[in-house]
Design a protein around this nucleic acid. Structure first.
Lengths: 174, 174
DNA sequence: CCTGCTCCATACATAACTGTATGGTTGTAT
DNA sequence: ATACAACCATACAGTTATGTATGGAGCAGG
């Protein structure tokens, strides 16, 4: 087993760092020390910090959103309930760290914004499949997504299980 | 008129900077250059960066939340609708910047968390005054607040006016 | 008018980074 | 075995920041 690093090792560690210490910890210097290597390794795998950051964001996008969206069957009866359940119960510290990053760094904000659109469109599809009236879909999808994001910011407060169902019922007009 | 600065001038400029450039711009060096003074001024008014940051957060808390909460009559029929209307239509870039800061910096997170509690409790009071069933109050207040926060993160998307009413109606069970 | 308080500039020491250049080490395919 | 590619350490130059020390400038009241 070699203890030498490859690009993806840096990316994994970057994601871990991002979740635990925030984007301000995504420095070559700091990470190299934490990994017990020199920055020489970093600059071999990545041209500069910016390139690393972009690769990291891509890594995050594919290992979270892409996989989830591809996996859920839009037409399933329980799709929305499943998504909401997982989204609201998952550990959202990475989501939180990314939003903070997006707020401070313009190009990150742009990438995240386009992701937001994709996610909301997906929720709209789910609501549509549940037979919600066309004119009510955009607001509910948006509010639902906003609540998800807001909840990610306030990580200490969690909705009790039953109450999450109540929320979905409300959104489904039941 | 003297062009010399006092503590509150630094705080005002700090809040402006925070909203426009984020917490990473809250550096003595950078701000002093922007204000065309030397850091000597900064370090005369504030012991160090941390003291400035704490004063800034207090400044923000009193000039936003405190004033709003104190001004709204809990018993008024339209209190909730007024609050929601203002909250969702206001320019939330400061709110956004503060959350990003709170995510990255522990002591800021703690202060913001206690503020969150105060705000949610306030919303609960409003819902209670509207006669919402006791067991439904905590979830609705929380979801409503989460949606507000989430919306602050996704600043480019805004709910059309009418739809905001629909949201409130939904929360009021109408 | 001069004493003291408020406010600021300048200079210094230190820290935490970035990015480059160069050379060395380790692994692997032939 | 050797050659080449992948990986890493070290040293250097540069940047952006913090905080302190010290010496002023400007305005107030006695």
């Amino acid at each position: 087993m070699s203890d030498r690093l490859r690009g993806k090792d840096w990316l994994s560690f970057g994601l871990k760092t991002l979740g635990e210490e925030g984007f301000t910890a995504l420095k070559a210097d700091r990470m190299a020390r934490a990994l017990n290597v020199s920055r020489g390794s970093f600059y071999w795998h990545f041209k500069n910090l910016r390139h690393f950051h972009e690769a990291l964001l891509d890594h995050w996008k594919t290992t979270t959103t892409d996989i989830i969206i591809d996996d859920i069957d839009t037409r399933s009866d329980t799709a929305l309930r499943t998504l909401i359940g997982e989204a609201f119960n998952a550990d959202r510290k990475l989501e939180r760290a990314i939003r903070a990053w997006a707020t401070e760094t313009e190009w990150v904000g742009e990438r995240v914004a386009s992701l937001d659109k994709r996610r909301i469109t997906f929720i709209e599809k789910l609501l549509e499949a549940q037979g919600i009236a066309q004119n009510a879909i955009p607001v509910r999808a948006t509010v639902l997504y906003w609540a998800y994001l807001g909840g990610a910011l306030v990580q200490h407060t969690r909705l009790p299980d039953g109450q999450l169902d109540a929320l979905v019922d409300m959104m489904l007009g039941k």
